[in-house]
């Protein structure tokens, strides 16, 4: 099956839902006109990134009128939105929401909230507690948000859960100037892991980063789609707005997995057994989440 996937590399307005909804509407229209079937927006692109104390002001419950508006827009083209989700018990999550044919089909709450150096996410957001692939009308997909992908366990789980493509909304800040390197060092690292992940897990990596500046921090753009062989199908401009699209054929996943059936050979029990052992190792400083992952 071949589908046309677009990425809207946008520059949202910080803390202004209405302005950003207008950007969504415009880009969704553009994707539909371009005959795209699936559109990826960057992390927190409905709200802006450095929200700090505006988090509760821009948070949306999944029955909010703005969400209804997004559902309606998804009749034109399926898309992934990046927004602040408020749960019934008033936790705020940095979420990616997959809209398809007028409905919400999947919500991923960012698990790894960077809280070091320039980042402060855990101060404002609650942490997601699950990583799941899900079935879309195009095939099985997974959503992972930015820092999630810097933890190899997330894509490992997504791939073993059957994802053929991983969509990654990102708000990745440019930082680190290196001589003889045409982009900043963060861009270099992302491109390295996108390619490595695509090849290692035989999946399509659909990476949508934002652009623009917030309080002097620039976002480097450079959104891309990488196929399971590590070939880059399309690349957006660095540091500037862009809109890109590529034909993605899931047959490539089949071909790649036929040639190198690494996922087939993956020994899940070995991994689980060793993880159980490591989990109990005294003094290992293991971060333990909640044991919730039973239902659904």
């Amino acid at each position: 099956m071949s589908i046309r996937i677009s990425i809207a590399q946008v520059n949202p307005r910080l803390g202004d839902l209405q302005a950003n909804l207008a950007i969504y509407e415009e880009r969704i229209g553009q994707a539909a006109a371009d005959k795209a079937q699936l559109l990826l927006f960057p992390e927190l692109s409905l709200t802006g990134y450095m929200l700090r104390d505006t988090v509760p002001a821009v948070a949306l419950k999944l029955d909010a009128p703005e969400i209804k508006q997004l559902m309606a827009l998804s009749r034109q083209v399926a898309f992934v939105a990046g927004l602040v989700e408020e749960s019934a018990d008033h936790k705020f999550f940095n979420s990616a929401v997959y809209f398809e044919d007028g409905e919400i089909r999947h919500v991923h709450r960012k698990v790894y909230l960077p809280t070091y150096g320039m980042f402060d996410e855990q101060r404002y957001f609650a942490r997601g507690d699950r990583v799941r692939a899900f079935d879309s009308k195009f095939g099985r997909l997974a959503l992972l948000i930015c820092e999630d992908l810097w933890h190899p366990s997330t894509i490992y789980l997504a791939a073993l859960d059957g994802a053929l493509a991983v969509l990654c909304p990102s708000a990745s800040p440019l930082r680190g100037i290196v001589d003889q390197q045409s982009q900043d060092d963060n861009a270099r690292y992302w491109e390295l892991i996108n390619r490595a992940n695509a090849e290692t897990y035989s999946v399509f990596m659909i990476y949508g980063n934002r652009c623009g500046f917030e309080d002097g921090v620039g976002f480097w753009g450079g959104s891309e789609i990488v196929d399971p062989f590590g070939a880059r199908l399309v690349k957006a401009r660095y540091y500037d707005e862009d809109f890109i699209a590529a034909e993605v054929s899931f047959e490539a996943v089949r071909r790649k997995r036929t040639m190198s059936p690494l996922l087939r050979d993956e020994d899940l029990d070995l991994t689980i057994n060793e993880l159980m052992r490591i989990r109990e190792r005294p003094g290992a400083g293991i971060v333990r989440g909640r044991k919730t992952a039973k239902k659904k």
Partner: peptide, 23 residues
């Protein structure tokens, strides 16, 4: 060594000024 990648710095700083002023 302090990096001096002038081409990249120029690109970033010009974008910074344009963005932060116009917004």
């Amino acid at each position: 060594q302090i990096p001096t990648n002038a081409a990249l710095l120029r690109q970033i700083l010009v974008a910074f000024i344009r963005n932060e002023v116009r917004k």
